[in-house]
Amino acid sequence: MPRVRTKVDGVTYEDEVEPRLLLVHYLRERLGKVGTPVGCDTTNCGACTVLMDGLSVKSCSVLAVQADGHEITTVEGLGRGGELHPMQRAFHEEHALQCGYCTPGMIMAAIDLLRENPDPSDAEIRRGLEGNLCRCTGYQNIVRAVRRAAAEMRAGGDADAPAVPRPEAEVTP
């Protein structure tokens, strides 16, 4: 079996994995990162979006072996010192979720959008979140949350640092 070494939320893991194991299943089943939901398994919904080397990817379309040597950030790895990331906080404060199933993917896609464009218009936010579906909201509060987080991140200088640097740790099962 192939061996992978990847950093997830600041912790380095080494594991043997089946060649066809999807990253979403590796994160959830092997590493316990259940904040990344399995949505459609077809890349249509975006619920499983994570950051790979700072760029959003749908983890149901990436094999765990493809993550070898890369840094993955999940929604669980965003907060700092017990505090929510500005995007997480904005989603909460702007009521940008109802059932919450799509929320992790929306947050991760929005963070990548702000990396590229720290001051997007509403239309640019909507375009940037295409491919991330929400069945419960009308997207209005989601757009408002991204706008709010963008302003906070620009004011706090966090626009280029969506992931949290964590102490290096090694985990080898």
Rank of each mutant, 00 (worst) to 15 (best):
C60G: 06
E152C: 07
G105R: 01
E83G: 14
G156A: 14
G77T: 00
A109K: 13
L27G: 04
P19C: 08
Y26S: 06
R126S: 02
M52E: 03
L55H: 12
A145R: 11
L78T: 01
E130R: 11
V143S: 08
C48L: 02
E124Y: 09
L78P: 00
K7D: 02
S59E: 07
Y101A: 04
V171M: 12
I142C: 04
G46V: 05
P104K: 01
I111H: 03
L84Y: 14
G46A: 13
L78V: 03
C99V: 05
L21D: 10
Y26F: 15
A110I: 05
E152R: 15
E130Y: 02
S121L: 11
L27H: 11
D68T: 15
Y139M: 06
R147S: 15
M106F: 15
T74V: 05
A151F: 07
G100F: 00
C45E: 01
P165K: 04
E168W: 15
C136V: 06
V65H: 03
V65S: 10
R30P: 05
L21C: 13
H85E: 04
V24F: 05
S61M: 13
G54I: 00
M87L: 10
P118H: 03
V143Q: 08
R154F: 03
T6F: 12
R28D: 09
C48S: 06
T36C: 10
T42M: 12
R3D: 01
D160T: 14
K58A: 14
Q88E: 12
L97K: 02
S59C: 08
A149M: 02
G157N: 11
R89G: 00
V34M: 15
